[in-house]
Design a protein around this nucleic acid. Structure first.
Lengths: 203, 203, 203, 203
DNA sequence: CATGAATGAGGCTTCATTCAT
DNA sequence: TATGAATGAAGCCTCATTCAT
């Protein structure tokens, strides 16, 4: 009961989601500092006071919006890859899903950048805790991949970090060059290079 | 103003450099929006008015500071690699110099991020013109590398873009994980992977 | 803010009037440039932000204040003279009311001067549109006065302009000489001269 | 000797005049507050420091410029009218010369307005002392005019004041209406009305 | 609870004046 | 003496946050 009711007053969680969505969209479009909380309120169709009723501060709202995106990202990647058993296939599927997510939610990229720019200090950053949160999951995958000795690298941490950083750069520069197509379009090429490098294998 | 004597006259170029250096340092430390021009003035040891004597606006100052860093970066990489004749060696040297530069001037990374975050849309962005400016130089290198058919990729543009984006991600995440050492320390590992991929060659 | 309680909510129109009144008073007392918007806010008993909530800019506020005075002036003169039927009596009554208004609202004079001094060139000037707005009304009066051929002048435009300019000078110099009394006190003398000139009629 | 010499360094009095002229022109064009002292220096072709070498402050410079204009005005009117013996002719000639002066030096009008707007307090105003300075001269004329009993008014002070104020209004509104021609063009009409009033003499 | 009017600290920029050269 | 680089006080405006209704 509740969410389908005819009541004008939406349930708190619906309100919250709407504000969150508005915030993500505004922050992505204008940057953290460039956004007046009023704009978020207008976009969400609520009063400014209401925004502050649901979120302590502009900063808290930003973090919540980012967290929301990160959760969606995780869900998306997990939903696509968790059921894939074969490790390399799982890696491939997860990577592809990762890229596809940002094609579908480009605002997430902007939130990444904004967080990096505005809250660079470890203290306030959400990115690091987030990475930590899922580290074990992906390290397990890397250990599996290393299991049969096919990797050139034997340190799961290092492999994970290296690939993460490469992907991160790939994501962030998505809009860098106008002619660049969707991220997923670049996937095969990227994945091929990540697996085999730029040199021919027989070298 | 600092603790020095009242008013100091210096040559315009010296003053400009000092202000530029102060600006780069402040912007890197606190972010574009987080910096009060007064702080830059104090850091440079000049009055606030003096800052505006040399730069039209805070924004202009930021762009000038970034441009300064980009010029240094280019000079550094060129100085290290231009004289290297053998293409692969030149690629290697340039890449290493590129990473080393950011170890020596980590504030440059922050300025990159800040520009991306604050001036994402605008024509004012310096990064893309900068990249364009040097595109030909590096494309030539890629064509040389492709000359003997040792590359898995035959499109100089694509190779250049791919590697640039990977490196960009590598740079940006430098401070991502506390335990990470200098960028140059990670060079061998990164370069190895870029050349040969994460899979063993015999796969 | 003043000594009153923390935050007071008033109807928008009341607040606007209060700010307008404070602005007129401040601008008159210190001149457009000599006024810090903070002073207006303090005088109105509101925060500075509130001033900007009601008026886009200092300039807009000034123009609004002037417009307000002009409206009052028009209402005052019209209220006094519109019901007077006999043309010459109407002219007399209107002129007297005009002078009396400035005795009652001397700040209006200052706003006139300030506008002339600060916004001389611009389209933003309110004075000329204002004059135009009422031109027809007064031209009609002049035509009536000319109807019986008692005027030395036969051009309603010219007569209107000439008298306006004389009155304007009379108003503006009100405070010119300390010993000068109220404008209305000088009315009879002025009006007599305007009607009959400084020379005796038999000359 | 001196002023015709080939020395690059102009004599102090020449410098001063140039600065004064530049100041008058700038103040008239942009208003007292709208002028950066730098602009005056540039216009005069000297360094900013030099301006301050000749004049204590911006305010002092403005007053000096105004004083200069007032002196010229006085000289002009006196030169034209002092030799005229017949009182009414002298009044007529002086008035006409007064108007003609402002046609030739319209910037004087602006300086009048600026002073009125910025330095309205008796203390700093130049206008009142100036008027006082010449009061006696003109009062004498008025007494002469009254000598033969042809004036409707018998108070020289009052007559002087009244006419001054009318003329002042006439001057100040010169640019008020675009279609208005030169002040001197309006002279006959104005003078006729001042002498005989707007009503026909036989009324 | 929801609202949006009210607030004031904070930041960018200007410009009159000073002073080292 | 002449200069113009240097200065910093001052002022306009924004916007995150609070709170009366």
């Amino acid at each position: 009961m509740g969410s389908e009711g005819k009541r004008v007053h939406k349930s708190a969680s619906v309100r919250e989601s709407e504000i969150l969505a508005a915030a993500a969209s505004c922050f992505a479009a204008h940057g953290y500092r460039g956004v007046d909380v009023q704009l978020i309120a207008d976009t969400a169709g609520v009063g400014k006071g209401t925004v502050y009723r649901y979120f302590t501060s502009k900063e808290a709202l930003f973090h919540a919006a980012l967290r929301h995106c990160l959760d969606q990202l995780r869900d998306h990647v997990r939903a696509a890859s968790d059921y894939v058993v074969e490790p390399m296939q799982r890696f491939r599927t997860a990577t592809r899903a990762y890229l596809a997510f940002f094609d579908a939610h480009p605002e997430t990229i902007e939130l990444f950048i904004q967080e990096r720019a505005e809250f660079r200090d470890q203290e306030t950053s959400l990115y690091f805790p987030y990475v930590d949160e899922h580290r074990e999951h992906w390290l397990a995958l890397w250990r599996q991949l290393m299991g049969d000795g096919r990797l050139r690298i034997n340190d799961a941490e290092a492999a994970n970090r290296l690939v993460s950083r490469m992907l991160y750069g790939f994501i962030l520069t998505r809009t860098a060059e106008p002619q660049t197509g969707s991220l997923e379009d670049g996937f095969e090429e990227l994945f091929e290079i990540m697996l085999h490098g730029i040199l021919r294998g027989d070298t």
